[in-house]
Structure formats: structure tokens, C-alpha cells
Amino acid sequence: MPLSHRLIATLVALIWGVNFVAIHASLTHFPPFFLVALRFALIAVPTIVLVPRPDVPVKWLLGYGIGFGTLQFLFLYWGMATGMPAGLASLVLQASAPFTVVLAAAFLHERVSGRAVVGTSVAVVGLAIIGWGVMGGTTLIPFLLTLAGALGWSIGNICSRQAKPTNPVHLTLWMSVIPPLPMLALSLVTEGPHRIVQSLAGALSMDAAGALAGLVYTVVVATVVGSGAWTWLLSRHPAGVVSPFSMLVPGFGIASSWIVLGERVTGTEIAGALLVVAGVVFGSTHHTPRRVDADPPVPASTGPRPDEVVDVSCRDLAQ
């Protein structure tokens, strides 16, 4: 990968890391469940009008939308609204990687390599350390909610893998059609029509400027620009070359939360974070044996196989 492309990949990780600060800003004005519905509705409307529906079984499209779009962001936004620090949230969501390994082995009967088992175990230990570190404070419940969001992400990963779309971008965009209605219904029941109307009525006021800017950043910058650049990189390089850059997201998330929001992390949380990232990186990399036959190597320009793109593109709307 040339230096310019590495810089683009790093920029995408930065965009997605800062997105947790943007979500925090949006939650200062909009109720969390309604914010999830609003976020995806702003993507779903142009998608229905302009983007062809992906040629995949409806059940896997629904599963992807429910797991990745609905459950992940329901619990993430709920957790952050009840006190989960933005930087720590960007890290805990990485639990989706070990969750995906376990679900794939249980339901898809995929073989799990020894390296993946070790990496998953290390990541789980890191999460346990983080959980132990926050157990004495007020962030345990938000931590568990965010962890549930990571589980939702992993469910979406399994469904997208089973969908096997020829165009992963179309699947990712059409996934956004699923969350708005159930999240709006949940918001009406739990948050109430008055709070929804109040948040919309004051959305253009100066007091809500930061929240509105955060929403625009999440939809336009993190989703359209970030996901578009990520997909562009995946079309030009193997997935195994591009995907490790996503491990930079928690670092940027924690750093931006410290700079913008003044969040602090304890030594225990840092130790757990290092184990989580190390475990995910170790478990997601593999050694590819050298070819011993006479077949010519596949040109780099052909890009990754469709199934490789699916696995990684699941991160496209994660932040």
C-alpha cells in the first residue's frame, strides 16, 4: 500500500474515532433512541430513492439491519446517554471482534485457529479488566450496555457474511432502512412524543448547534466520507492490508475525548485497553503460506475477494 493510501486509511480511523465525540454532542440535545432513528432515517431516505436494493436474501438484510444497525446503536447510544465515556465506548465496541469469532464458530461452524483463540482470550481478559476497573463507579451499567452494542455488531457481522452481497456498499446503505421505524416506535413508548417534538423544535436553536453539528458529522463525515474512503481502499488492496487500520479507532477516540471533553482514563482501563487491542490485532492477523505451485500470483489490482470485503465492510458504519 503506498504512503498516500496509508494516510487515507489513518484519516478514516481518525474520522471514526472523533465520531464518538460527535455522538456525545448529539446526545446533549436529542433523546438516544430517537437519535438512532433520526440518524438512520437521514441515510435511509436517499438510499431508497437512489440506491438499488442489494440482491441478497431478505432475511440476511433484516438480520444485518437488526443486529448491526438497530441493536448496536440502541445499546451504544443508550450506554453513552447514561454515562459511558465516549473514548471508552470507542474501545469497548472492539469486543465485536471476539464476539464474532464465537458466534461464527457456534452458528456457522467455522474453524477457529489457535491464533484466533489466543487473541480472543486476551481481548476478553482486557474487557474483564476494564469492567473491573469501572465496577466501583457509576459507569458499570453503561459499560454493559455498550458491550451489548458490540454483541449486536457481531450479530450483524454474521448476517452480512451469510448475505454474500456482490456490492457490499449497497448492503451497508440498505441496512440503514431497517432501524428507523423500530427505533422510532421504541422512542415513542419510552421517551414520549413530547420529548421528541421538543428536540426537533429546538434543533435549529443556538443551544442545539453542537448537537446538530454532531449529527451532521455522524451522517455525512463518518458515514458518507469515512465509509466511502474505506470502501475505496478495499477495492484497491487486500482486506488483510486495510483492516488493521481500524484498530487505530479507539486510540483516536480516547485521544479526541480527552482533548475535547476532558475525559480521563485510569491506569487499569489503559491496561485493559492495551490487552483488547493487542488481542484483536493478534487474532485477526494470520500467516499465509507461500505458494509452491507454478500458478502465477494474483495481481494486486484485482483487490480482495467479495467475502473478504464483506467481513471488513461491517465496520463501515460502526462509528
Rank of each mutant, 00 (worst) to 15 (best):
V12C: 13
V12E: 07
L14P: 05
L14D: 00
W16K: 13
A22H: 13
I23F: 04
V36L: 12
L38P: 00
L38C: 11
F40S: 12
I43A: 15
T47V: 13
I48H: 08
P52E: 10
R53S: 14
V58H: 13
L62D: 01
L71N: 01
Q72E: 08
F73Y: 14
G83R: 01
L93M: 14
Q94K: 04
T100S: 08
A105Q: 02
F107T: 08
R111E: 10
R111A: 12
G114N: 03
V118M: 14
V124S: 04
I129C: 10
T138G: 11
L140N: 08
P142G: 09
F143N: 07
F143K: 09
L144F: 13
L147W: 05
L147N: 04
W153Y: 09
N157V: 06
S160K: 00
R161V: 08
A163P: 04
N167M: 11
V169L: 14
W174Q: 02
V177K: 03
I178A: 07
M183L: 15
L184H: 08
S187K: 04
V189T: 12
E191I: 11
Q198C: 05
G202S: 09
M206R: 09
M206N: 08
G210F: 08
L212N: 03
L212F: 12
Y217P: 13
V219T: 15
V219I: 15
W232C: 12
W232G: 12
S243P: 00
L248C: 09
V249F: 07
P250H: 06
L261Q: 06
L274H: 04
V277G: 07
A278Q: 04
G279C: 10
S284W: 01
V292H: 14
A294K: 06
P296W: 11
V298E: 12
A300N: 06
S301M: 07
D311V: 11
V312Y: 06
D316G: 05
L317Q: 07
